[in-house]
Amino acid sequence: MTPFELAEPKTLKEAVGLLDADDPTVRPIAGGTALMLMMKAGVFRPSKLVSLRAIKELTSIEIVKGELTVGATTPLAVLEHSEAVRMHAPVITRALRTLSNIRVRNVATVGGALAHADPHMDLPPVLIALGARVVVQGRSGARTIPVADLFAGYFETVLAKDELIASLIVPAQDGRRAAYLKCTTRAVHDWPALGVAVSVAADGKAIKNASIVISAATETPMRMSAAEKAASGATDDAALRRAGDAAAAEAELISDGQGSAAYKKELVRVYVARALRAALGAA
């Protein structure tokens, strides 16, 4: 790590003002767990870090008009243990339990987990399946972006360098059931080789419609529209398998140390069906 300047603004507006649209060496830092890794590896050498830790307005978990609103610097552990979150979308609570480790969850934040845009992160596919959106603050005001549209590529978001994620909004789930399955191939606890998040509207075991998202094996989290179509109207296990087959056919997968693309295609096939089964069995 090399020396840098550390700014500690007290308000969101002040923080946005300290960022620089044209200078990639100026970045916000909240929990810092991911950023510290990049700095230690020498792949990111900041000139200035803008700490969001002192900004009180970014740490809250509330239900507003039936929607769950989470401030961007809320630590993942706080989200994990929030009763409001568990009532609203228990899949988030379950997914967080498998995310990295307790020390990282104590420090890493919701906003960071999204802004880092690492396709191996667990929350993005879950939030996309739940139809979540983020409120983004820039110099000229705020805008809202569906999480599904947030990622521009590998470790890349659509945010400008002087924009900050201020909050996350998870809409009312209206009885939809969801599951997140994480498949690791090198150890039980590892970055996923494949993440599958699904959310279904169902009557008993009959699926009315499904949202199916895969991550980790792809450049960015991806919705599987052919699989969603195949799952819609599914009433038996064979139909869930067909959804898995459809996902395997449409997914564009990456070969890496966690497995070849050909193998991950088979994982997609199996895990999409398993995730749908899990969602149907979930609360």
């Binding site: 090198r186 150890a187 039980v188 606890h189 590892d190 970055w191 140390g257």
Partner: peptide, 15 residues
């Protein structure tokens, strides 16, 4: 290409 604990996985208590 995997010279770190992130990519070279030694056994943990859950393994």
């Amino acid at each position: 290409t995997n010279a770190s604990f992130a990519d070279y996985k030694i056994p943990s208590i859950v393994d």
